[in-house]
Design a protein around this nucleic acid. Structure first.
Lengths: 359, 359
DNA sequence: CTGAAAGCGCTTACAG
DNA sequence: CTGAAAGCGCTTACAG
């Protein structure tokens, strides 16, 4: 160890600020008096290395301020330690929470996460996926913009592991992690029925999505169980956006007789519906009730709070990522999984409602 | 074109599902009857290529379902087209909105974004940055966990471009994009002073951060302009978390005389403070006023809404990313920038407050 | 406008 | 336990 050649001190290296000076595995090998492959073994903890050699290599790497080049590693080893999270809009707090669950599990296993917003556009989705293929990401967590399986198949064809989040796609074998939309919707509708509502408008999402179909199905199941006829004019399809919620709410408010309750199929739809109700000077819950699938966080604790079917967003992100990582490392069960997480019915009675009930 | 050798049809390639079958630039070159470098030129739109050659190469690439390997590209060209966004917690809607601004600008320029949550931990931050160096990301948007410049310097030393978001760091030349904390805080405090408040408690963030110092400074400036003595016991330092807001609020509520208004230095602190007020059965704004720097979205439009100093989060993300991309491509002005975006004072008078004032 | 050669910085696959 | 050789799939730097 005494005959190690003199080298630039680490601080000088750091100060030099030139990409050309960046040490490579070969420089480390030279300084430690070993072959590059030995350095590789030390850094990756792969294969046998004697303790003495390991120490010498680690010292040399530290001396040279060595930063391994992961691109070269990935190119050779066919592993990028990179995942992608493709959601509709990270700005929706539901997806934000999912994203946090994903990132926590991924970074714990030395994976990084690229995030992408499709805004429910198949074109944007296709562009992102093509980019991700070029990057050779190891896996993709996909909230598909359509229920067509092409996107999933395109990834699988290039040996990219996929877990579909939240929604189901048709005609492809693939792992899926999602909330229980049917039961969640049924519970919400039952809650309204128990409160005495019989004209419940369903403000649904895009008709083509599995979650939409399932939430509508849960709503219909509840009505049928209570022997309430399903009125098709009370079911509206649109988008999972504030604007669409506003439009759909106005449509059903124009019906005669007016519905006594609104079922918003997601949080943004609920926000739009509430805006429409304010514009119509209708009070919640005195004039009309509102329930929501998912929720918008109400961090200031203000009223009125809507009863909601809450999906475990953080858990969903974590569970999906664990499964994806298992697929990548080959530790997952052979059969594709369809993991359905239960929703929680949060019944909220505002003080205004309490006051109204006491009157 | 008639003498092009027969090749596997694209659908067969897609079906084969084996990484080994993935076409390379060499396969495309062979099929198009050109050299690999020519394929490279076509795909990257670099250098001269005749229209006929270009067409042949594009046809061959399509036939083979060719997906360029970006790892190889990056290894050779020293460009990864990858940015990283290092924030404290993507779950805070302020950072979520920033993130969306970042991603929109980045994807528009064919960059992808890796996101990282430090939870204000310097250790986590160091781990992420070391990972990002190994990945050779082109640039990092950093919300520094401390005001020490080491992290920034470590990145710059490896030729990674950096834009510091929201906060300032000491002792390093670096681009910064942030909201105007001093003016924003001054406006909020002035608003309270105009309403007649004289005992205004400041629930501040971590004492070591520039934003904390600046928001406290703005608060003090306003008091001095109104000739109100600054009472140090009314200024509390903590963390930008709900828990800390709760603790700090309880501390100042125990003071005699009690403050008549609370200034929350960020949205999560406000949420915690409101929780403390509810626990103490204090009504906002009848019993005590609350203002907040940044805000938590109030998507359902519920009351009471807090007056807030709102930073343009989406714009901040976009502006920082544009600057970062300019640095990477060498289009940015030579001098480091310190871009300060104005905050907007949103004065909110709840109907309850209106009623209280009319009474 | 096009190409042959070399190399980016690692790891794989052998060999001893 | 360690290493020499080859190669991952591109682009750089020349050359013509």
């Amino acid at each position: 160890m005494a005959d190690v050649p003199p080298a630039t001190a680490p601080s000088e290296v750091a100060r030099s600020n030139l990409a050309e000076t960046m040490a490579t595995i070969r420089d480390v090998a030279k300084r430690a008096g070993v072959a590059p492959i030995t350095v590789s073994r030390v850094l990756n903890n792969s294969g046998y290395v004697s303790a003495a050699t390991r120490a010498r290599v680690e010292q040399a790497a530290a001396d040279l301020n060595f930063v391994p080049n992961m691109l070269a590693h990935s190119l050779r080893s066919n592993r990028t330690n990179t995942l992608a999270l493709v959601v509709t809009d990270i700005t929706n707090p539901f997806w934000t929470t999912v994203a946090r669950g994903v990132e926590d599990v991924a970074s714990d296993q030395n994976f990084n996460v690229i995030f992408c917003n499709t805004d429910e556009s198949e074109e944007k989705q296709a562009q992102y996926l093509s980019m991700l293929l070029r990057r050779r990401v190891d896996g993709v967590l996909l909230v598909p913009a359509s229920s067509a399986g092409d996107a999933v198949r395109a990834l699988q064809a290039q040996d990219v592991k996929v877990v579909v989040l939240d929604r189901q796609v048709a005609g492809v074998e693939v792992d899926t992690v999602r909330g229980d939309s049917v039961a969640g919707a049924r519970h919400l509708a039952e809650h309204l029925l128990q409160l005495g509502h019989r004209r419940i408008a369903m403000l649904a999402g895009p008709e083509s999505l599995s979650v939409t179909a399932q939430r509508v199905a849960g709503y219909q199941e509840a009505l049928q169980a209570w022997h309430v006829a399903v009125d098709p004019s009370l079911i509206r399809y649109g988008a999972f956006t504030v604007e669409s919620g506003y439009v759909m709410a106005n449509e059903v408010l124009a019906l005669q007789p007016r519905p006594t309750a609104l079922f918003a199929a997601n949080n943004f739809i609920a926000a739009g519906a509430l805006r429409a109700l304010r514009a119509a000077a209708l009070e919640v819950p005195e004039d009309i009730s509102v329930v929501v699938f998912d929720e918008l966080p109400n961090p200031y604790g203000d009223e009125p709070r809507l009863s909601a079917a809450i999906q475990p967003a953080y858990d969903l992100g974590q569970t999906a990522t664990r499964l994806l990582l298992q697929r990548i490392t080959g530790e997952a069960p052979e059969a594709y999984q369809d993991i359905v997480l239960p929703t929680e019915l949060a019944v909220r009675t505002s003080s205004r409602r309490l006051a109204a009930e006491q009157a």
